[in-house]
């Protein structure tokens, strides 16, 4: 079977049962995407397929032979980081780092969805989707971080989305649950 991943062509001889995630991790040495739950619940395996974020554990590789696939390795490399990778480092948007590739791929897809005007569950007027902390939390709810680096993940995404830093007083209030 033939695949296009991060702009590069790959050939792989795989079982039809192979998920897109296992294709990358076990057959193509693209181990950046992580396997958390393997059931679409944690988001650690998030990749971009034709520009859209999806759970790569819940889709068969055989169904993606004509698609453009981007993994964390395709977004940026050491010395040439994607703006979200750079922002995650500077805002400390992780602790153990296991969910981070999925968080970053998901954030890339999510910001593109906002640009297209897609609303979310917390959007008031569905015609007018604008990013806010509540919107980021809702839209990123498919990515679980067991270290609970959520406030810093939101900060990193805020910066790349051009929203600036959170008000320090509000930030503290939110973090202590006030």
């Amino acid at each position: 079977m033939h695949f296009t991943i991060n702009g590069r062509s790959y050939e792989a001889d795989i079982d039809v049962r192979t998920s897109l995630l296992d294709l990358c991790r076990e057959h193509l040495e693209l181990t950046g995407s992580k396997k958390g739950c393997d059931h679409g619940q944690c988001g650690a395996c998030t990749m971009l397929v034709n520009g859209r974020r999806v759970n790569s554990c819940l889709t068969l590789a055989v169904m993606h032979q004509d698609d453009e696939i981007v993994t964390i390795e395709g977004l940026g490399q050491v010395g040439n980081l994607h703006p979200l990778q750079d922002a995650f480092v500077r805002h400390d948007g992780y602790q153990c780092g296991y969910c981070t590739p999925g968080q970053i791929c998901s954030a890339v897809g999510m910001l593109d969805e906002v640009k297209k005007g897609w609303p979310s569950h917390v959007t008031g007027d569905l015609h007018d989707a604008e990013l806010s902390d509540a919107e980021i939390s809702e839209r990123m709810s498919g990515n679980i971080c067991r270290c609970a680096a959520y406030p810093n993940i939101v900060d990193a995404i805020r910066e790349v989305a051009g929203m600036g830093d959170r008000d320090p007083v509000l930030k503290t209030a939110a973090e202590i649950g006030a």
């Binding site: 679409g40 988001g43 998030t46 859209r52 974020r53 999806v54 759970n55 819940l58 889709t59 998901s106 897809g109 999510m110 969805e113 609303p119 979310s120 569950h121 959007t123 569905l126 015609h127 839209r139 990123m140 709810s141 498919g142 990515n143």
Partner: peptide, 23 residues
Amino acid sequence: VIDGYEVLSRALLAGASGQLRNK
């Protein structure tokens, strides 16, 4: 859908995650 059937948009957005809704 948003203009004529808002209940459908709202129900879809209340379900699953962004990744799952894309697929």
